[in-house]
Design a protein around this nucleic acid. Sequence first.
DNA 1: CTTAACATGTAAGATGTTACATGATTCG
DNA 2: CGAATCATGTAACATCTTACATGTTAAG
Lengths: 212, 212
Amino acid sequence: MSVEHILLGVLSWMPNSGYGIKKEVEISGRELGWGRLSYGSIYPKLKKLEEEGFIRAVTAEREGRMTKIYELTAKGWRELADWLRCPPAPPEIRDELVMKISFWETGLPEDRETLIEHLELRRREAEEMMRHLEEWSRNGYSAIGELGGLAMDYWLDHLRLSIEWYGRVIRYLEGPPAPPRQDPHGLYEKARRRRQDALGPEESDLPKHPRR
Amino acid sequence: MSVEHILLGVLSWMPNSGYGIKKEVEISGRELGWGRLSYGSIYPKLKKLEEEGFIRAVTAEREGRMTKIYELTAKGWRELADWLRCPPAPPEIRDELVMKISFWETGLPEDRETLIEHLELRRREAEEMMRHLEEWSRNGYSAIGELGGLAMDYWLDHLRLSIEWYGRVIRYLEGPPAPPRQDPHGLYEKARRRRQDALGPEESDLPKHPRR
DNA sequence: CTTAACATGTAAGATGTTACATGATTCG
DNA sequence: CGAATCATGTAACATCTTACATGTTAAG
């Protein structure tokens, strides 16, 4: 319920254009802390915020280009402060890789190589992301004040932890193919049987080529 | 692009009802790894998946109650496997608290107490969440196999890190009110001035009572 | 001269949430 | 007997993404 507030917050750092806001919040194509912000949502929202008097457009010349720079009005600063005072919503994490890992042993137990590939790709992406972040925070931009720096640390620490965990899972997968299994409720065995009953013994054993 | 696949994955653990799927995936009202799953999206999707032949309803009696239990068909198992083989989308994290912290010094610099309250509330929630998770993983349910256990570790490690970080920020905020500031680009000073120009000197200094 | 980056926007469509509606059963 | 939990569903609404459309300027 508040892409609007993210926009007001970014504009509190400095007056900016729609294009500039996206650049400000994204690091290598991803947004930290706010899923994604696409132009398709930024521009209409900025228009709406202007109509409602939270921001004001100052069509300006920036390095030779015509740019529509927005800045906060008194009403906008007040709205931002009110929003900041409200208790924040709980965090939402959407991580397809971790979900796939949770489903792997019941859904595709015979194919460990593909999962290792997923993990290695993700690990490379995360390392790339960390490099960008470290460089960015050295520039001092967008991390305004000490709190901004602490927020940066938050993302860096979590990235570091994720990278470490990807390695841990890869090491597990590269180990012996059938380790002794803790299965107090027999769920894994039952799942394996249901799958075999549905697919037949041949298909449930033969890994196929990945698509996409 | 795949609440559907989450449903197929959870059904691969065991045949289940719409109600049961939600219970399975949520821990104290939050879903790990997949934002939220509301009944308003679960039931229509299950219906659609059944119409398309990925799952099959087995209306059954579970502890005296009439329950619509769904299970995967051969087509459903195949679709799950195909999805698992696809490279996963990058993770999305939506964390309003961390965003608010990034905006705090430009948006509401004079009010540190409210931010400390936000952080303490969040820390309590995270500790509560950790307790639930630890208990849950001791039961052995829903963490099928070693990989399920590793996924559990992933959430626990991240929760632990977050709790540690909340403490760090609280300690910083409880420290001296105006620490020496690194501001190589003068962004903080400029933001402060823009805010004061827009709001006037009185309003920009007086914290108000929190709403909600 | 052509590619990448800068820059703004719209419209259709997918997606998901909230609130509502309903009813059974269990437990204190 | 009332509250909580189990259980299923719908409809209106809010939200966001994707793809498209368009044009400029800088750099190689």
